[in-house]
Simulated scan of single mutants.
Amino acid sequence: LCQRAPGTLCPRYVLLAVIFSSVYSVWASVTHYSIPEEMKEGSVVANLATDLSLDVKSLGKRKMRLDLIANKKYLDVNKETGELYVVEKIDREYLCTKTLTVCYLKMEVILENPLRIFNIELEILDINDNAPQFRRDAIHLDISESTPTGERFSLSNAVDPDVGSNSVKTYHLSESEQFTIEVQTGRDGSKFADLILKQTLDREQQAVHNLILTAVDGGTPARSGTASVIVHVLDTNDNPPIFDQSIYNVKIMENSPIGSLVVDLNATDLDEGLNSDISYSYSLYTSEKTQETFNLNPATGEITVKGMLNYEDFRIYDMEVIAADKGANSVACTT
């Protein structure tokens, strides 16, 4: 204890404890290798003993082991030779997503007595083991026959699990007078095709166009996939009804009973749907007397006797009949 005169401070002493830690010999550098995917089981990747300057005879005693930083053990080490070999085929598309441009399998080689750890990075190189595929086998398009040339239509793109040059490179379209394609490149580098109308469509000549779209990758040899492009041409009201005769000359006996058939008019329209549905009516050039004497069925075009016929009153009846379709922009003809 410190004994000094009152008002005098005693000196303080600090105990300094020094702790020394034991450090193992650990080497944490990274060794890189690269192999193509789908290598056969048993294929040798490298000789780790040689590359890491290890004594092959001591590998067993030092309990050499391989720890993979992954869910599956694709590789192992031969403790007698120091060779790193493939245990199970590696599928790059399963191991790494398409968004990764480089695919690595990371692992550690561990030896004991003394402890040494080597970090290994194995780059898995892509091979062209996948063909492009379309999301749908058939692409259906509805295109109006009034569509102007140069109009573009988007087509479903093909996908390829491979990367780089092994992914989709271009598209081809089967021979067609009406259509061609233009290959576009997206911001992510993906390829897709636009269908372009190069010649006006005519539904009455050809209502359906069957095309084949082919996606080709850039591998060697190249792989390809196909999809059907089926274009249905939608009708526009571009055809008028046409009577099977321009003039109908009909003879009928006077005093023919009411309801007797005079003539069955027939008009046809090359369009479809409402554009080909026809209704019949008298034109303004048909006299009221004629209309009172003869009945015109607007749906069938049948003209029947409506009133009494008398040869001495009228010998000739002139009538003009209009055949009009029911399209949005109705088209008509007369006889």
Rank of each mutant, 00 (worst) to 15 (best):
P6L: 07
P6V: 09
L15T: 14
A17P: 04
F20V: 13
S21D: 11
V23P: 00
Y24T: 11
V26N: 04
H32A: 11
Y33T: 05
M39F: 03
S43M: 06
T50E: 15
L54W: 01
G60R: 14
G60S: 15
K61T: 12
R62N: 06
A70P: 00
A70W: 03
K73H: 13
N78C: 06
K79D: 00
T81H: 00
E83Y: 00
L84N: 08
Y85D: 01
Y85T: 01
V86R: 06
V87R: 14
K89V: 01
R92I: 08
R92D: 02
Y94H: 11
L95I: 03
L95N: 03
K98T: 07
T101N: 09
K106W: 01
V109G: 09
I110T: 10
L122H: 00
I124N: 07
D129F: 00
D129A: 06
N130C: 10
R136S: 10
H140R: 14
S144G: 15
S144L: 15
S146Y: 11
T147M: 12
P148D: 02
T149H: 06
T149K: 06
G150K: 03
E151A: 15
S154H: 13
S156P: 12
P161N: 05
V163S: 09
N166M: 13
S167G: 05
T170Y: 10
I181K: 02
G186S: 08
D188R: 07
S190P: 00
K191D: 03
I196G: 07
L197T: 08
T200N: 03
D202T: 09
A207L: 08
L211R: 02
I212H: 06
L213I: 15
T214L: 03
G219C: 03
S224E: 01
T226V: 13
V229R: 12
V229C: 04
H232C: 09
T236Q: 05
D238L: 04
N239V: 05
E254A: 10
N255V: 03
G259V: 04
L261E: 13
L265E: 10
A267Y: 09
T268L: 00
N275V: 05
S279N: 10
S279W: 14
S279R: 15
L284A: 09
K289I: 11
T290G: 01
F294M: 04
P298W: 07
A299P: 06
A299E: 10
E302A: 15
K306A: 14
Y311G: 02
R315M: 04
M319D: 09
M319P: 06
A324F: 01
A324T: 15
S330I: 05
V331I: 11
C333N: 15
